[in-house]
Every structure is written in structure tokens, then in C-alpha cells.
Nucleic acid binder design. Structure first.
Length: 373
DNA sequence: CAGCCGTGGTT
DNA sequence: TAACCAAGGCT
């Protein structure tokens, strides 16, 4: 079998030896040093930031990080909190399985490790929501452990500097990058501070100079050795994800109002918006009318008001939301608020913040609140 | 192992 | 504007 070579050019052996040292020097003088989760070795704070930063940009994370730290100052506080409160604080940040795993992880640290995070990457990676790269980042920043990370920044830097071919999301390419990441780490003699600076340097270089759009090669410490720079292929490396047409789904949502309260339902724990509170949903116009009728909100199946449709884009599909509105009190024989189980709730619009609500639904309800004033 | 899982910024 | 994707992990 002759798979195409992943390393394009020559091994660049001289750089491989000097890579870590040069990166550490660069990080200390030109890297980032004042992000909210830096200048601490508290594994709790480092862990919290690393989970939030998974597939999420720094500027988006910062306000959430502050909110979480204020509400949950340590891992015990987070472990003791009700999951609903965690989900409510996480709402809007996306990838909600992270929030459930965050809570499970805090409880595991308390129960399995007596409230102290383990210091080895292997043990960290056994905890919910912590994979190989996140484990290495935590171990490196909190404990100075020698462990390779491989996030989007590192993939971009390595692909360009060492000329790694292929889409990094592909398993074969990712495996090669893990090997490369291990091979360019600081040596055994490196101090914990060196290791932390190295790990931070990889992230900083990728986030500030070796960016996707227009890399600032003039300021990069590796310009003279960079395969992409030498061949003018900064834009081609790393290889882009293969294009796929994203499907469009359509859903109908019921905005059932009772005074200033609206009916919310808890979504199932897995799948899109898992564990969040959202509006009752149906697959088509007839089904949403049936639902409103069954809830006693309308006199017949034509009593719904149409609201402006909303389109929401996910990574892998688009969602068209058709909101349909009904006033519970206007229904004949409406007996007032029905006792609800743990999966449904009448929520005053002013208290939406207490519930974890998907971003587009939140926008819809915010607009509704504005229109009622 | 490849598909699933959010949202907002950037180009 | 529509594509692209960011401090990935889980199944």
C-alpha cells in the first residue's frame, strides 16, 4: 500500500531540534500573558477555561468564564450545583454536552479524587469531557507536565511549518500530526515553566500570527524554516475540510403565552440542544396546530398566529424555524395554569435567564418581550 | 471512524 | 453573502 506521503518536503531536522526552544523564547517576549485564565496554576480554573475554549473563540469565552467563576469559585461548588443552573449559565455558548460533562467531571473530581484534579494527562483524560489534547493542556499549565497538545492552532502551525499534507480532520493525518507534535516537544530537561510557555506558545502563535486568513509571517520566529512560507502555500496549508452540502431542516415551534409567561419544555439530554429548555416543537403546520389544540390553547386548529420565521445555521445543517403563537388565556374554557411536571414550565419572559434556552429561541423570546412592552 | 454537536466572528 | 471554522470530545 502506497499512501501518499504526509510530510511533503524534507524532514527539516535542524528545525525539529530547535523548534521548542525558539518557540519558548518567542512566547516569553511576544506571547499572550494576560488572558483571564492565565497567571494561575489552579487546575480548576485552567480546566474550566480549556473546556469552554473547545471549538470556541477566546472573545466568546471571556464573559462566560467570569460568570462561572463568580458563581462556582471552586470545583466543589460546581459539583454541588444543580445541573439546571449549570445549563442556564452555559446557555448561548453552544456544544451543550460540554456543560453536562463539566458538571459530571466536577463531581468525579470530588468523589474519585477528593476534590483535587489528578496531575497526569492519562488520569485527566479519564474524566468526562477531557480528551487527549485538553488533558495535555491542563497537565502542562497546571502541573508543568510534558505532554503534547493538538488543537486547531497546533494543527495549523505544524501543517505550515513542517509542510504536513492532507485534511487534519482525517484520522491518518491527525495521527501523523500527533507524532510530529510529540517529536517537537521540549526535551526531558525542560522545566515546568518551560513546558507551560511552550504549550502556550503553540496556541499564541496560531492565534496571533499563524492565523488562517493572513498569517503575519514577518513576525514569525519560524519564517526562515517554514515550508508553507518557502513555497507560498500559507493559504493551502492546512488542507481545507472537504466540502459537503449542508441540509436544511424545518421545524415548527409553539409560542404559548399566558400573560407574560411562556410554556417551555425540557429537551432530551442528547441530540441538538440536549438538556436545554425550548419551545414545544412539531414537524409541520398541522402537527403544531394539533399540539396547540391538545394543550387547550386554541378553539380549533386554525387559531394560531404566524410569527416571522427564523433561520439558524449550525455547522452541519441549517434550521428554518416557523414560530406559531397562541394566547392561552384567550382559549375558551381555559382553566388557568395547569400543574406541570419537571419537563415543562411556565416561564415569565423576565426570568428566561434562569433557564438554559437555545440562542435562536432566546432571540425569538427577546423580540416577543420587546413587542409586548 | 466518521458523523454529530452551537454559536458567533471573519472573509 | 455564504462559506469557513475556532484552545475537541463522544459515540
Amino acid at each position: 500500500m502506497s499512501a501518499s506521503p504526509i510530510l511533503a518536503g524534507q524532514p527539516a531536522a535542524p528545525l525539529q531540534a530547535a523548534f521548542a526552544t525558539r518557540l519558548i523564547v518567542w512566547q516569553r517576549s511576544h506571547g499572550r500573558h494576560d488572558l483571564p485564565w492565565q497567571n494561575t496554576r489552579d487546575p480548576y480554573r485552567i480546566w474550566l477555561s480549556e473546556i469552554m475554549l473547545q471549538q470556541t473563540q477566546v472573545s466568546t469565552v471571556i464573559p462566560y468564564y467570569g460568570k462561572f467563576l463568580a458563581r462556582f469559585p471552586d470545583v466543589a461548588a460546581l459539583a454541588a450545583a444543580p445541573i439546571d443552573e449549570v445549563m442556564a449559565l452555559w446557555a448561548g455558548l453552544g456544544y451543550y454536552s460540554r456543560a453536562r460533562n463539566l458538571h459530571r467531571c466536577a463531581q468525579a473530581v470530588v468523589e474519585r479524587h477528593g476534590g483535587a484534579f489528578p496531575d497526569s494527562p492519562e488520569q485527566l483524560a479519564e474524566l468526562p469531557g477531557i480528551g487527549r489534547s485538553t488533558a495535555a493542556a491542563i497537565a502542562s499549565f497546571a502541573f508543568g507536565a510534558r505532554a503534547a497538545i493538538l488543537d486547531g492552532n497546533v494543527k495549523r502551525v505544524l501543517a505550515r511549518v513542517f509542510g504536513v499534507e492532507g485534511f487534519p480532520g482525517e484520522k491518518r493525518v491527525e495521527n501523523a500530526m500527533w507524532s510530529l507534535a510529540e517529536s517537537v516537544m521540549p526535551g526531558e530537561q525542560a522545566s515546568g515553566d518551560d513546558v507551560s510557555a511552550y504549550t502556550q506558545g503553540l496556541m499564541d502563535l496560531g492565534a496571533t500570527l499563524c492565523v488562517r486568513g493572513k498569517p503575519d509571517c514577518g513576525r514569525c520566529p519560524f519564517t526562515s524554516d517554514c515550508v508553507a512560507h518557502a513555497t507560498g502555500r500559507q493559504r493551502e496549508l492546512p488542507a481545507a475540510r472537504p466540502k459537503k452540502t449542508v441540509p436544511t431542516r424545518r421545524t415548527w415551534m409553539l409560542v404559548l403565552c399566558d400573560g407574560d409567561g411562556v410554556l417551555l419544555e425540557r429537551r432530551p439530554p442528547s441530540g441538538i440542544w440536549g438538556g436545554l429548555w425550548s419551545l414545544p416543537e412539531a414537524a409541520d403546520e398541522a402537527a403544531i396546530a394539533e399540539l396547540a389544540y391538545a394543550l387547550g390553547a386554541v378553539r380549533d386548529t386554525r387559531g394560531l398566529h404566524r410569527l416571522a420565521p427564523i433561520t439558524h445555521s449550525f455547522t452541519h445543517f441549517k434550521l428554518d424555524i416557523e414560530p406559531r403563537c397562541a394566547d392561552f388565556n384567550a382559549a375558551p374554557g381555559a382553566g388557568g395554569l395547569e400543574a406541570r411536571d419537571n419537563e415543562t414550565a411556565w416561564v415569565p419572559l423576565a426570568q428566561i435567564d434562569d433557564y438554559g434556552v437555545p440562542a435562536p429561541v432566546r432571540k425569538l423570546l427577546d423580540a416577543l418581550k420587546g413587542s409586548l412592552i
